[in-house]
Structure formats: structure tokens, C-alpha cells
Nucleic acid binder design. Structure first.
Lengths: 236, 236
DNA sequence: CATTATAATTGTACATGTACAATTTATCAA
DNA sequence: TTGATAAATTGTACATGTACAATTATAATG
């Protein structure tokens, strides 16, 4: 683990141990540097990481403060940055509806940038959050990049398998969202009625080297899913 | 404007001028440093900015590449700038339904962290995108922080006024999203029917010093709004 | 000719140091 | 007290430099 990531984790532990709340002040930068025995660069990167993650905010001339959302029960839809420890407090289960290796369907080709006739794993599963139906997920993995999958893996966390077992480095993703009325076919799986509202999110996942490897369409159950995003403004 | 922001803008211009497409390679880091005559730190920060923005991606040992989404007509959901910045290619109009200065409503107090009886500007407006109804927006600004607003400002971009005229520094925001069925009161404004699907986004905007100044609830027209998010890092 | 080992390329992590801008605190005049 | 003003505090911008990891290109090997 990188030093600045490690430092960030330690600062989170510090916040936890001292039971710091929204708006509470952390030790001053120089103090933090001494306390955690790292250079200014490393501490700055660690703090920047925590700031993007939504854990703290920094005010020049004033100090470093804890940032916490007070609402519970929201899913972090996009942790717009690096750590993956988001849904730990929830119980996530999966039921696999179908699992097959097929030639890449026509309408998926352009999303995955795959060659015609290339093989993909096509997976359809329902995901549960704390016992409730959260969403229906249809996903397609390019076999060129993900050579092997089986039903057992698919019942667990696919991404964890990709990272640990296959050593793939997942980079960035493009997400397209829209709201609409449920068609009957999907409504049945979610135990809802046709015409009920739904949020649909299409995502194209890329490796760190930019190659797309996974296209997925997720339809969320509108009663069992709500999302929080902690944004840090100012692009330019 | 800061040097690394300026540099980022220049790199965007470079990409534009050379008509670089998805996956095209930019000059090597050292070359960029010489070309734009900045230090390594500055160039790195500029590139990091563009990476978070979704303009490029960097691959160690390989190079810096252009990242572009190929879909059109999607709204960039996350930027604390309101719509005005990222929707330049769209025509955004506003119709003000109501505008008043009132004591902060009970249910808003905890979101804004305001004192009881504190005055807020309450604004309700419909926003149009390319002539179509995009959303209904209800927003509340604390008068403590935003001392003056008028109907003319509210018909234009409020955030631009806050930044330029008032010199406020907008920092971060917490967004809460959920999907549901439209109540009749809102459906009428969006020219939809009660029970139609809708995406509702509540946002609490903060200044850079952490003080919340604006709480807004936006209900999107499901047929005239779809969103894109270019995310870095992973989840689930 | 495919494979493997080696070297060159290229971006990232990390350290140190200077200057400065935003904020807070202290000081002083009226 | 109040209000202005100066000083101290504190985080950010920026420069330079070293070491290193991931990738790609090249050479060596069978």
C-alpha cells in the first residue's frame, strides 16, 4: 500500500478514535506531519485523498475539518475516487439468473469496442441489499481480457476476483443515467409493476490502460435504493 | 487564475486544435513540461485536474491519452457550477415561479444548519433545456451569507452572481438522489402526469470554509434529462 | 520464430524548500 | 466598547530533485 494511502487510512482511524464530528478541527498540518512522520508532500496527498472522498475539508488560514453526511441508508453510487470500502456496512447478496459465453451482441459491440464475433461472458443477476431487491444487473465481460469466469465467482463479487485473482487494474468508467418506466420483463424480476419508475445506469468500465472490458446495465428498484454523492466542486 | 489551471486549459486547447480523439496520445510528460514551460509539479497537477475531469487518462510507462465519451445529449450531473458551465452547447432558460424572502422553513433548518427564525430566499423556478422542460428547482439561500438577491438575478445564473458579484467561494456539496413517482403538484409544473417517474436530487452547497449556504431540491423531467458521469476509481 | 531476458521509456511517489494567500488573533486608536 | 490595522497562523502553489514501478522496445536465446 502506498504511503499516502496508508497515511490517509491512519487519519481516518484518528478521526474514529477521537470520535470527531462534522466541523471538528484536526491537528494543524505541521503537527500532522510530525505526528504521522511523513513529508509534506505525502501528507498533502493523503489529505487531498480524504478531501475528495468527502471525509474532510481544508480551509486555508484556518485548518482541516471533519466532513460527515448526517443521513443514513444511502448508497455511495460513485466514490469519485479511490477506496472501495463503501458498502461494507450493508449486506450485499446476488442471485444469478443466467450465465453464458456468447458472441458479443450487436448493440454491445460499440460500447465495448470489441471486434465482431468476439466472445463475451453475459451475466444477468439480481442484487439484494440487506435482504431487499436492490437492482437487476446485466453485464458483459470481454473474454479477451477476462479469460475465465464461472458461476461460483459470479455469485460473489466479480470485481474482487478480477483484481485479486486475475490481477487486473481497474481504471475509470463512463456512466450514463436516465429515469424511465419499467417494462414488464424487468418489473417482474424486481417484483414491481410495469410502468413503475426506475433508474437505469449504463456503465463502461476500463482498465488503467484504457481498454474497456465490461459493459453493464443496472436497473435500480426505486423503493430500495437511494444514493449519496459527496462532490468537490470547481473543475475549472 | 492559477498556473496549473491555466496549463490545464491550454492542454485542452491543444487537444482541440490537434483534433485528438479517444485514445490518441499526447506528448510525453517531459515534452509537455518544456512545451508549456512549467515545472513538473505544475504539469502534474494540471494533468491530474484533467484526469479527474475525464479529459485524459495517464498510464505509467506508456503515456498520456485522450478520453472522450462518444454520446451526445447527456447532462454532466456533477459540477457545483450549476448547469451554465458544462452545458454551453445547450440553451438553458429559466422561468421564475416564485421568489420571496421568508423565515427558514422548519424542514430546511437542519439541512442548512441555520438558526431558528433566520431569513432565507426561497426560489422556485422551471428550467428549460433547448426549449424543453428539464426540471423544477426549489432552492433556499441563507440571507446571512447571500445578503441580496432579486428577480433579475434569479432569472439568470444565481451561482455566477454569487461568485463574481458577491465574491463567494463555493466549495463542496452533498447530493442525495432518489427515484419516485411524481405527486400531482409537481407533475403539473413539468407537464407530466401524477405517478410518472422522476429523479429527485437534493443538494446542500457549502462555501470553501464549510458553511452551508444553499439547499435545493431538483425534480427532473424523465424524458428530457439524462446524465453522464465520468468516474475515476472503483466501487462495488 | 516464438520466448525470454534486458534495457529504455515514461509516469508516479516522495522529500525538501520558498513564497504567498486566506484566515484568525492581537494590538491600538478613538 | 468599537473598528480599523498589523501580526501571527495555516494551508496552497510552485520549483527541483531522487528513486522507482509499469510499460514498451530491443536484444539474446533456444
Amino acid at each position: 500500500m502506498l504511503k499516502y494511502q496508508q497515511t490517509a487510512t491512519e487519519i481516518e482511524a484518528y478521526i474514529e478514535q477521537h470520535a470527531l464530528q462534522q466541523g471538528d478541527k484536526l491537528p494543524v498540518l505541521d503537527q500532522l506531519i510530525r505526528q504521522f512522520a511523513v513529508s509534506k508532500t505525502t501528507m498533502t496527498k493523503a489529505l487531498e485523498l480524504l478531501e475528495r472522498k468527502g471525509t474532510i475539508f481544508q480551509v486555508r488560514g484556518s485548518g482541516i475539518f471533519v466532513r460527515k453526511t448526517n443521513r443514513k441508508g444511502y448508497i455511495e453510487l460513485f466514490s469519485t475516487q479511490g477506496f472501495k470500502q463503501n458498502l461494507v456496512e450493508h449486506d450485499i447478496q446476488s442471485k444469478v439468473l443466467s450465465f453464458e459465453l456468447i458472441p458479443c451482441p450487436e448493440e454491445i459491440i460499440e460500447n465495448l469496442g470489441s471486434a465482431p464475433g468476439e466472445m463475451v461472458y453475459a451475466i444477468k443477476r439480481i442484487r439484494y441489499i440487506d435482504g431487499n431487491i436492490m437492482c437487476l444487473e446485466e453485464s458483459y465481460y470481454r473474454q479477451t481480457i477476462v479469460p475465465y469466469l464461472n458461476r461460483e465467482i459470479v455469485e460473489q463479487s466479480i470485481f474482487e476476483y478480477l483484481e485479486t485473482a486475475l490481477g487486473l487494474n481497474i481504471g475509470f468508467s463512463d456512466m450514463y443515467m436516465h429515469v424511465g418506466k419499467l417494462p414488464d420483463s424487468i418489473a417482474q424480476h424486481l417484483e414491481l409493476k410495469a410502468g413503475d419508475p426506475a433508474l437505469t445506469v449504463e456503465t463502461i468500465f476500463h482498465l488503467t490502460n484504457g481498454r474497456p472490458f465490461d459493459y453493464s446495465v443496472i436497473t435500480y428498484h426505486y423503493e430500495h435504493s437511494q444514493f449519496v454523492v459527496q462532490a468537490n466542486g470547481l473543475y475549472l
